[in-house]
């Protein structure tokens, strides 16, 4: 399990990185934390001819808050930096709750949010979380910068909307609506494994305590992170009572397309989606002011 040979490039600017990618095309891969790419290379499932290391590119590794409360996470920010950031814990606890389920500290030391999102594994937690948080992707290419909503970024298993000559520069997470409650729950065979099913829930109540906004997003539930807008819509206007949540959780099961794995049959995954959605919504409802 040794990787095939490749050339190593370690540019120091985004422009240089993009230029290298333009030159080498799809024979080249960007490497961020490498925690998904290197195992694939060790198995020789991935054999890029050129690796473009982003770790020395200036400006990709910072967390920055805007005055409007949105968070800009540079594509090379390591998971450990995010999970240790007190402000993230305070304002975006959903990220923290989900990060605790992402592999193990040894992986999070090196792993980056940007690399994870570009890897676009539908079983991964963070794409679903970014969907639930309505994050926007700052994509850099030779033609400049474009912004993609998370919903448009993930196209299929291990497939994103990034063109061959583009890279993800940052993830912009808008502030949660005031008083919103969030929850992330998953069931994995072992802690740190990819989930058999996972769900991120965001709920906001209006002044009367009724649900004003609901979002649900699942991982391991289809070819991409899967939102369940129909189920979420059912909740709006309800008091978020147990029966309301149960109905939404049931509806969500019809909106996902679990594909099954050696760990879980599609039928069991769908069953889990209902169970976990109900539990996550209940938690989020309790947490919503």
């Amino acid at each position: 399990m040794k990787p095939a040979p490749f050339d190593w490039q370690a540019p120091e600017t985004v422009e240089a990185a993009l230029a290298l990618k333009s030159v080498h095309g799809d024979g080249a891969r960007f490497i961020a934390g490498g925690q998904s790419l290197v195992p694939a290379m060790n198995f020789r499932v991935a054999q890029p001819g050129v690796l473009i290391d982003l770790s020395r590119v200036a400006g990709l590794d910072s967390l920055a808050w805007s005055p409007d409360g949105s968070l800009r996470i540079g594509a090379m920010v390591r998971y450990r930096a995010i999970e240790r950031d007190a402000e993230v814990a305070r304002h975006l606890p959903l990220i923290l709750e989900a990060l605790a389920e992402v592999a193990h500290p040894q992986i999070r030391t090196r792993g980056t949010l940007g690399g994870n999102l570009c890897h676009a594994d539908p079983a991964s937690e963070m794409p679903a979380v970014m969907l639930a948080l309505q994050a926007r992707m700052e994509v850099r290419g030779p033609g400049g910068t474009r912004i993609l909503p998370a919903a448009d970024f993930f196209l299929g298993p291990l497939t994103t909307a990034l063109a061959e000559d583009e890279m993800l520069a940052a993830i912009m997470v808008p502030p949660l609506p005031a008083g919103a409650g969030t929850a992330f729950l998953e069931l994995a065979r072992r802690r740190g494994d990819y989930a058999m099913m996972g769900v991120a829930a965001v709920l906001r109540r209006d002044g009367a305590g009724r649900c004003a906004e609901a979002r649900l997003a699942f991982c391991s539930a289809g070819p991409t992170p899967m939102a369940a807008p129909g189920a979420a819509a059912l909740l709006v206007g309800t008091a978020l009572a147990a029966a309301d949540i149960a109905a939404a959780a049931e509806a969500a099961k019809a909106e996902i397309e679990p594909m099954g794995s050696v760990q879980a049959s599609p039928a069991y995954q769908r069953h889990l989606a209902g169970v976990l959605a109900a539990r996550a919504l209940t938690l989020a409802a309790e947490r919503a002011a």
Binding site: W8, A10, G34, Q35, V38, P39, N42, L51, D53, S55, R80, P105, Q106, I107, T109, R110
Partner: peptide
């Protein structure tokens, strides 16, 4: 100072 997998990094990194 942080724990990491030596098998998931290249020496050049």
């Amino acid at each position: 100072g942080e724990p990491a997998r030596a098998c998931l990094a290249f020496a050049v990194q």
